[in-house]
Simulated scan of single mutants.
Amino acid sequence: MAPASSSLPIVFFLVAMSFVVVVSGQKNGAIYHLFGGEGSVTIEECPDKCNYRCSATSHTKACLTYCNYCCERCLCVPSGTYGNKEECPCYNNLKTQEGKPKCP
Results as ranks from 00 to 15, higher is better:
residue 21 V to S: 05
residue 99 G to R: 11
residue 24 S to D: 06
residue 25 G to M: 11
residue 88 C to Y: 01
residue 7 S to H: 01
residue 27 K to D: 04
residue 24 S to A: 09
residue 99 G to I: 07
residue 80 G to T: 07
residue 35 F to W: 14
residue 80 G to H: 08
residue 21 V to L: 14
residue 26 Q to H: 13
residue 40 S to G: 14
residue 68 N to T: 14
residue 21 V to P: 03
residue 64 L to C: 02
residue 70 C to G: 03
residue 75 L to T: 07
residue 61 K to D: 11
residue 101 P to G: 05
residue 73 R to C: 03
residue 93 N to S: 10
residue 65 T to V: 08
residue 38 E to N: 03
residue 74 C to Y: 05
residue 45 E to M: 09
residue 90 C to A: 08
residue 69 Y to W: 06
residue 5 S to E: 06
residue 42 T to W: 03
residue 15 V to C: 04
residue 60 T to E: 06
residue 50 C to L: 09
residue 21 V to N: 11
residue 54 C to L: 09
residue 79 S to A: 11
residue 34 L to N: 03
residue 60 T to H: 11
residue 53 R to I: 11
residue 78 P to G: 02
residue 27 K to R: 13
residue 10 I to E: 13
residue 8 L to D: 01
residue 77 V to Y: 07
residue 48 D to F: 04
residue 100 K to N: 09
residue 16 A to V: 15
residue 77 V to C: 03
residue 8 L to H: 08
residue 73 R to S: 10
residue 29 G to K: 05
residue 18 S to E: 06
residue 99 G to S: 13
residue 92 N to S: 01
residue 89 P to Q: 03
residue 21 V to T: 11
residue 21 V to H: 07
residue 63 C to V: 02
residue 57 T to N: 02
residue 92 N to H: 09
residue 68 N to R: 09
residue 84 N to R: 15
residue 46 C to Q: 05
residue 64 L to F: 03
residue 95 K to H: 12
residue 39 G to K: 01
residue 70 C to A: 06
residue 35 F to L: 11
residue 23 V to R: 06
residue 33 H to R: 14
residue 51 N to P: 04
residue 53 R to W: 10
residue 73 R to F: 09
residue 9 P to I: 05
residue 65 T to Y: 05
residue 53 R to Q: 10
residue 21 V to Y: 09
residue 63 C to G: 06
residue 92 N to K: 09
residue 102 K to P: 00
residue 100 K to Q: 11
residue 66 Y to K: 15
residue 8 L to Q: 07
residue 102 K to D: 00
